[in-house]
Design a protein around this nucleic acid. Sequence first.
DNA 1: AAAAAAT
Length: 594
Amino acid sequence: MTMSWADSVEDSNHGWSRSTRASYVPPPLRTKGFADPHSPSYDRPSRGGGGGGGGGGERRSKGDRRRAAANRESREPNPFDLSDKFAELVVADEGGNGGGGINFDAYEDIPVEVSGAEVPPAVKAFAEIDLGEALNLNIGRCKYVRPTPVQRHAIPIAIAGRDLMACAQTGSGKTAAFCFPIICGIMKNRSSFRAKGAAAAARWGRNVACPIALILSPTRELSCQIHEEAKKFAYQTGVRVAVAYGGAPMGHQLRELEKGVDILVATPGRLVDLIERARVSLKMINYLTLDEADRMLDMGFEPQIRKIVEQMGMPPPGARQTMLFSATFPTEIQRLASDFLSNYIFLAVGRVGSSTDLIQQRVEFVEEMDKRAYLMDLLHSHRERGNHGKLALTLVFVETKRGADALEHWLSVNGFPATAIHGDKVQMEREKALRLFKSGAAPILVATDVAARGLDIPHVAHVINFDLPKDIDDYVHRIGRTGRAGKCGLATAFFNEGNLSMAKPLAELMQEANQEVPPWLTQYAQRSPYGGGGSGGRNRRHGGGRFGGFDYRRDGSSRGGNYTTSSYYDSGYPAYASVPCVYANEPVSASGWD
DNA sequence: AAAAAAT
């Protein structure tokens, strides 16, 4: 048996004051005698289930605890009732594929690459893993019948306690892939966690939440979404989930934290704030997940993430389990990310760089001044084509916040019910825009890159890149807002002389995804200064046009002794003769999917 | 050059 997390925490608890890794002390606690385990406050019992792990259990009788637990569970709102109020419920079990509306046929013969030392084998069914009864019930309530490809590979790896860098196509079930093992692990080791949590709470103060798992994401809306999903997965497991993000009043979030939290979902800024106010401690973190990890580690974000992970008291790699997930993983980001990982497994599932075959991609040459007229034509033609009365949403991406407001206004003036989301709006407006869009009240959403990643909006039939992004990976994430859960989608991009740098990567991407590349784009691609002899980063980082992910360690020398690479086509399900194409405006249950 | 993330 390898050293367990509990052992390592034991170590760090005993040696905390003389640890080589500087112990983080938040400013409010620096003058107090908080740090002395023998200080008078050490044995003080805490009330409720407060602090980190349900602290101060020793003084309560078994009956008390049972009543408290029962009380907590009876108060826990049923997250499944809530989702029923929304359109997603149309879901039911259509199509007879038994996947809660998920088109599994589209996921056979998925290319998979796994590398690392001693890789745990994939599973074909949830039942092959002992996730526990409560979690299995929730899987049923979510109407998940079989695991998606990324889940089939990632869950056994995560359950085995291994660090993971996972690259999976957009809309392929990543949230559940990291939530299930975390919830399962917390349940299995609950008594040990609770005891440590009580000790930590006693030492750090009762108002310091000491989560066991931390899930970081790059936008507030994405954190909300992960929180909602995680609550479903954790329903009646006793595992407590909370969320912390900026732009919202801190009071409510603080009250939730005070009730005790096992899994904290957060955006970086608010989390740092909470840590510095000594309302959250990372001392007890056993699981760290970065969602949209490549975004979290890019230029603007990386220093903040590094601060949280390396300088705010979190156990180091090896003493915690770290899992990074994204649809794209450039080599430079992999190199950065390896600082946070220990003997990790690299996993790539699906045609990562090209999203999926399920998204039909088109590029039109449109001059800047013609874009609005062209957009109007597109919107008209789609309106007239009719959607059998079903919801068909259109997501329009623009480059700037000002541009988003301008286009929203122009669309509204011209009779199109549109709304807009971007980072200059206050959080209330952002959430309202998303709500209007999801419900169909405003079936057109104009957005900046704030909406490019991870957001799971059912019924997005069409993504329009009104302005192309500068980076091909951003393009991949944007179009991934459609074609989710195995459904088809359409993505249209407006290209002009201002997008020359995108010509080559875009043409290559479309070719990889078996899309029709217009001859004029091929010509631009050949003329492109970034093109020529394959000097572009794309081939290198996406494995030379085969399919998505590529473990950067393969061309380095930093591998361990048992390092192996397997690359194969994996069909976890009985094969079907054809891959039926279900459109995104069909009823879909995509919840919990990405 | 732009966007996101704390107040």
